[in-house]
Each structure stands twice: as C-alpha cells, then as structure tokens.
Nucleic acid binder design. Sequence first.
DNA 1: TTGAAAGCGCTAACAT
DNA 2: ATGTTAGCGCTTTCAA
Lengths: 332, 332
Amino acid sequence: MSGSRPTIEDVARVAGVSRATASRVINDAPGASDLLRRRVTQAIADLGYRPNETARALASGRQRTVDLIAVIDNPDLALGAHPYYSRVLAGVVTALETVNVQLRIQVVAEEDAAGRIDTIAADLTVGAILANATPDLATQLQHRSRKVVSLVPTAPSVPVVEADNAGGAYAAVRHLHSLGRRRIAAIHGPDLNTCSIARRSGYRRAINAFKLRDIGTAGGFTREGGHAAALRLLDEHPDIDAMFVACDLMAAGAIQAITATGRRVPEDVSVIGFDDNVVAICTNPPLTTMRLPTEEMATAATRMLLTGTVTPGHRERFTVELVERDSTSEVG
Amino acid sequence: MSGSRPTIEDVARVAGVSRATASRVINDAPGASDLLRRRVTQAIADLGYRPNETARALASGRQRTVDLIAVIDNPDLALGAHPYYSRVLAGVVTALETVNVQLRIQVVAEEDAAGRIDTIAADLTVGAILANATPDLATQLQHRSRKVVSLVPTAPSVPVVEADNAGGAYAAVRHLHSLGRRRIAAIHGPDLNTCSIARRSGYRRAINAFKLRDIGTAGGFTREGGHAAALRLLDEHPDIDAMFVACDLMAAGAIQAITATGRRVPEDVSVIGFDDNVVAICTNPPLTTMRLPTEEMATAATRMLLTGTVTPGHRERFTVELVERDSTSEVG
DNA sequence: TTGAAAGCGCTAACAT
DNA sequence: ATGTTAGCGCTTTCAA
C-alpha cells in the first residue's frame, strides 16, 4: 500500500488516465493533451513519484546513464592521475549515489573527438557532462542532443555550470598587488582553452586596474608547461616579483623552476595558483591559490541532467575564493 | 535469433531444463540436482550467456552494485581530494565500464565503522572493495558476507589484491644505499595500518641487510604528519642524509620541512616516497618514489567480485617499482 | 528436485 | 489524443 514507492500505475490512477499517458508525460513524449499533462504532473508531485530506472531500462532495452566526457590531450594525466578529473568524478558520483543511474566515462582523444560526436550524441540517455570540452565540440553535441551541460564555458547556447574564472584571476592579482608586488607575470593556460581565456582576461583587467605591466606566457596546464614557462619568464624578465599561474599543476612546475634559478619563493617571487587541489599543499612552499568548488559544480551539473532541468543557455556560476598558504608574502 | 544476446530462456532450452532451474544454477541457489547443474553450466559456457543485470534487478527488487568502502579518518582527504581514492575510483570505474553494475561508494567514518558493519554486509549484492579497511573491519565484513576483497593486507582469510609493500620498501632503501647514503631515516605510516606495517618491515629488513642504523618515526600518512615527522627527525638526528617516507603525501611534507631547516634536497638529504601519484611530480624537487599500480589493482579486485571468483584466503600481489626523479642523488 | 506461471515497473506497438 | 496490451529478462512463489 502506502509502504512502498509509488509506481506509474499509481500516478495513472490518481490522475485518472492510462499508464501509457502517464508514461508519455513522464518522458516528455508527444501525444498527450495539456489538460491530462497537467493532471499527471500534479499526481506525480502529490505522490512524490520517481520512475524506477531499472524497469525503464528493461522495458526500453537501454540503461540510463550519465556520460562524463573527458577530452584528453595528455595521456599521462588520465582520470586517476589528474586532480581535476578526480574531483569531477567525485562530484558526479555524489549526485548519483541515491539514484539508479549508471555512470559512463568517455575518454575522448582530442584528435578524434570530432569523429565521435555523432556516436556519443546518439548513445546519450540521461545526458552528458562535458568536463573540458571545446566550444566547437560542445556546440555540436548540444545541437544533436540538448541533454548536455558543460563544466567550462563554451558557447552561449550550451548550458554551463562554471566557475568565476575571470573574477578569481582578478582577485588573485589584486592579492599580489596588495602585498606590494608590482611586477606580476602570468603563466596562462592553453590559448584556446576557455577557462584559460577567462582567467587571462581577469588577469588583464587587474593589470590595467592597478596600472601594471602585462607580462605573460602560456604553459599548457601541465607541470612541465609551468616549469618551462617560468624559466622563460625569468630569463626575459629577471626582475619579476610575482607570478599569477592559471592552474596549480603549472604553479608546482613554476615553483620548481623559480627555486632552481636560485630565487626564493615567496620572498623574491611570490606565486599564486588556481584550483586548490591536493597539489597545492604539496608544493614547496605550499601554494597560495584560488579555490574552485569543482566537486560541487560537478554535483550540480549531474543533478541538472537527472532532473531534466537543462535548458539551452542555462548558466550557473560558482565563486572562486582565495586560500592563503606560503607561496605569497609581502614585499620585504 | 543469433543476433542478440542469449537469455536464460536459451540456456534453459539448450540444457533441456526449465527457466527456474537455470536460474537456480546461475544463482548458486539450492534445489537443483548435480546432473542438471552440470548441463546448465555447460549450456551457459556454450552460449556465452551472461545474465542481464537490469532484468535481474527488476525481478529481484534490488540493484546489483559494487560497493567501494572507504574508511575516512581525515575529512580533508575525502574521495575527490586524496590521490589514493582517486586512483582506486578510476580503477573500479574501468572494470565497471562494460557491465551493468552500479557503483556505490560508502564513506565510513572510522569511529562508527563497527556499528555499520551489519548494515553494510546486509546490503551487499555483488560485493565490496575495501580500500583501506582495518583487519578487524575486514574480518567481520568477510565473516558476514564472503563477497569482500581488500586492497590492503588485512587478515589471512580475507581475499586481497595487494601491492608488494615490503619489497617496495626494501628496494627503496637499497636504492638510497646504492647512492652512498648511510644514515637513512624512515617516516612510517600509522602504527596500525597494515600497508604501513609492511613497508616498515621492508625498511627494517633493508636496514639490517645493509647494517645501517634504524632511525624512524611515524607520520600518519598526511602531509602535515610528514612535515612534523621530518622536523623531529632532523632535530634529533641532524646528520641524517636520506629519508625513506612511506607515502608521497608525507614525502611532500618532509621535503618542505627539510628545506625549511636550510638543508638541500637531494644533496644534503635525499628523499624517497611511496605511491607515485600526482603529488610526486609536484614536490620541489620532484620526488623519487616507489610506484604502486593502484588503478590496476582496483580493476583486478572489481573483476574478481564481478566474476564471483573471490575465495577466502585469495591473495594477489602486484609489484612496486622505482621511479627516479630529483629528490635522490649520490652522496657527493 | 523440478517446472509452470505470476509478476517486477516500465515502454512501445497497436487499437481506438 | 488516449487506452489496451504485449512484452523486456529475470526471480520467485507455488504446485507437482
């Protein structure tokens, strides 16, 4: 009776319609009048009905899954290794804890992403979370399926749960400035990466606001990239007294490079990163950084997919906060 | 016809029995003669039959899941943050990619682990992977369910997919010794942690083999712990020229501490870690460490559960290999 | 010990 | 537009 979970049968009965109609409403399928549609929706709400995913899967012949799409350029930093994916994964898993929905992870190599779009879109059931898709890929995927949400900014029409990258970068530079740093160089991420672009624009805005010189180079979001970039920067601009680095992994490399040139962090060169993942406490010295609420963002994105509340152009923005550690200090 | 996957119906027909009997055999349920049991088993093999998990879940009323049990003592190092869990998660997800089995993650606080054992055991369907269980917890769980496999050594009867912790620790010390280091201190993990115990015994064995002095302290497997431990060690034994640190996170802390005392890594004090997770490339200098194949181990453990090949006392051991970076050097 | 048959909760033809 | 009905592949009574 009232002990077990309501079924579609209950919904149909309460709404005074057939199971088929109830099913149509639940699945947003055509072939139901607005009147009945409303009655069913009401019944669902009243009963607190939630479809049994298992029965759905059996009847329809396909398992409902949430797809996590990761575009990989560097195979060394796969799912288990890269702190970003780890956090995304953890966030998605949290949202999936209570529902009967499968998680499918699709690792797509950058070069054959284009070729796989149709297949991916066709296989989508609940929808896809784009961990790090390019605007192009995201747009195409969204065109073919609608059930897509990105964790990084892409194109205006693609639903996104994003971090305030520009604001975070601005705050980072402002912090360095408040410490008396005046020659603040930047190690940016890849030129075409949208997070990287947003962070760079935040940096530029701050540089202008504080009337500083814009010194920057790109590092590719890897430790190696950060290392090489810092070396270049110090070579060309030996008087740099701070670095804004667009991700923690690069910041780790930058710190290694800075100290390798005989400079001290934070006294000679203060460093501020972006992400606040486990790497930040392991650099030497520990890294001051801007914290991204990655897990929370992934959870939110997954919930959107699950509840079907993704609408084109939907935009949710999470704030990014400063976490002070030992890689920054006042000019002394 | 031959196009789609064989069903239990096909198995029953080929074996010349009813669906009910086939089901009994498949589920190891009582009530089937040895003769029929053999015929069904043969038919399953011939057809390459694999049960449809979705149908199973619907009929039985419960979803089959693999449970990943993580005992958490430090909330700061939850699933998304700690590199170990990330790698385990990645490995489990890999094994689950092709099957219709749900992943359920149970985060258990250390203090109420005991109280939750019965509930956890009762809810198990496919089985549980114990990421970091104590011998006590593992034994009790295995007692109540059988379908349990640990990723760390626990008790002899509990099936385990483990790393050669002792061998790895021995190899680490041997490496330091081969570089001319003679005052090799150790930062061990928690006293009661079985990985930590195995690594410590490997260290001791090496210390004896090379006739070195046994200098050690415990660090609790956290960055903070490693930091504090290194400070203590250097204070009490200022002439230490190398450290064997039982995990990368602690090694990161140790390196921070060593350089903070004005010593150089690797020249004055060489450091070798254990794990080889993302942290290892982010320390300053990058960390020489012993690589644990955590993802592969987790995948193997999950497959065992899935195929039902877990038997009490089963023991699988993965080797641990040296990865040289810049935190170790010859005495010069 | 074995088999027949009734569902599990839902989707999707097919009728109306 | 709406309802009727036949399964999806399996487990689990219930009878034999």
